[in-house]
Amino acid sequence: MRAVRFHGARDIRVEDVAEPSGVLAPDDVLIAPAVTGICGTDLHEFLAGPIVTPKEPHVYTGATNPQILGHEFSARVLAVGDAVSHVAAGDRISIQPLLSPRNDYYGKRGLFHLSPVMGCVGLSWAWGGMGEKAVIKDYNAQPVPDSITDEQAAMIEPAAVALYGVDRGGVTAGSTVLVSGAGPIGALTALAAHAAGAALIIVSEPNPNRRRIISEIAPYAMVVDPRSGDLAQIVADLTEEGVGVDVALECVGLEASLNACVKAVRRQGRVVQVGLHMKPASIDAMLWALKDITVEATWCYPTQIWPRIARMIATGNFPVEKVITARIDAKDVVSKGFEALLDPAGEHLKILVTT
Score class of each variant (00 low, 15 high):
residue 183 G to E: 01
residue 187 A to P: 00
residue 191 L to W: 01
residue 192 A to D: 03
residue 196 A to Q: 01
residue 198 A to D: 08
residue 200 L to W: 01
residue 205 E to S: 01
residue 206 P to K: 02
residue 206 P to C: 00
residue 209 N to L: 02
residue 213 I to Q: 03
residue 214 I to K: 08
residue 214 I to F: 03
residue 215 S to N: 05
residue 216 E to V: 10
residue 217 I to A: 04
residue 217 I to V: 14
residue 218 A to N: 10
residue 219 P to I: 13
residue 219 P to W: 06
residue 222 M to Q: 13
residue 223 V to D: 08
residue 229 G to N: 13
residue 229 G to W: 06
residue 232 A to N: 06
residue 233 Q to S: 14
residue 233 Q to G: 07
residue 233 Q to K: 15
residue 234 I to T: 15
residue 238 L to Q: 15
residue 238 L to P: 11
residue 239 T to Y: 07
residue 241 E to H: 11
residue 243 V to H: 10
residue 244 G to V: 15
residue 245 V to A: 05
residue 245 V to S: 07
residue 250 E to L: 09
residue 250 E to W: 09
residue 250 E to R: 08
residue 252 V to Q: 05
residue 253 G to I: 12
residue 253 G to V: 08
residue 254 L to R: 13
residue 255 E to M: 07
residue 255 E to L: 06
residue 257 S to R: 10
residue 261 C to V: 11
residue 262 V to C: 01
residue 263 K to L: 12
residue 268 Q to C: 14
residue 271 V to N: 01
residue 272 V to H: 03
residue 273 Q to V: 15
residue 276 L to A: 12
residue 276 L to G: 05
residue 276 L to E: 04
residue 281 A to F: 08
residue 282 S to M: 12
residue 283 I to K: 10
residue 290 L to F: 00
residue 291 K to C: 02
residue 293 I to N: 00
residue 294 T to L: 11
residue 295 V to K: 00
residue 296 E to W: 00
residue 300 C to H: 05
residue 301 Y to W: 10
residue 302 P to E: 12
